[in-house]
Amino acid sequence: MDAVIDPAPTRRPSTWRSRIGPTLVLIVCGLFFVLPMITMARYSLQNIITPLLRWEDVFKKWSLSGIKAAVSDPGFWPALKLSLELAVATVALTLLLLLPTLLLVHIKVPKARPLIEFTTLLPFMIPPIALVAGVAAFFRPNAKWFLNSNFSLVPFYAILALPFTFRAIDAGIRAIDVRTLIDASRSLGAGWGRTLFRVLMPNLKMAIVSSSFLTFTVVMGEFTIAQTLLKRTYPQFMYEFYSNRGQGATALALFTFLATTAVLGLMFFFVRRRDRRAGTTTTVF
């Protein structure tokens, strides 16, 4: 039983004076995030030359021509397609490596966890440019075919995403009693495969989804490695397009931002809703 303590006697009467501080903070933060978006939107989507943009024209001459130009560029779809393929491949590789490893570490060698946690932080300490320079120096003379493939980016993206993916999956594993669930499943006759797919994965669903999404965003936004290895990924396309048509590229950036936010929101909404039904406790990274 939770003891319910009535907070009323100790609470000061809420007046506009006590609310003014928090409200002000919210307004400032809101402006900080929203103003650049509005500016971006006006710059890229209003058919008015930038120096002539005035507040009186806020509702005039809006047009999607900038974004249309970006989308109809011959480089757009291949770049987007490549980045999406890389993202899917990276998610698959990450889950394939990380899920069994972390489960094994959790059950068999819990002492190794701090070491692994530290290792996953390395991508934060090693700048991507240093990583890619080393990679290029090693693979160019030794395995040029590897660097020639677009998918040579996948392992590096998996490494770059490690600080996020490790934490998401680790938190998910620690939120459930893995050991007992495995024992229970096995004592009921389930082999390792069934235990993994019918017991562990469903209960790590939220962790898997957040880890996948974080991987996805890392891949969709990575520029340094792709640029250095001359791969035409989506960020690379945006960069090139920007040097030709600033307005179109800004419109593209704005739409990309809105699209990822929408996908993220929808994903969490659906998983959350199904989870609430099942009542599993999940940790969002």
Binding site: D177, T180, L181, R186, S187, L188, P202, N203, G279
Partner: peptide, 19 residues
């Protein structure tokens, strides 16, 4: 191995599958 034995087990901690 455990999953080929015909044993029923009840654990100390709650072991029901939460999903």
């Amino acid at each position: 191995p455990a999953h080929k034995r015909n044993m029923g087990m009840v654990f100390q901690s709650y072991s029901l599958f939460p999903n």
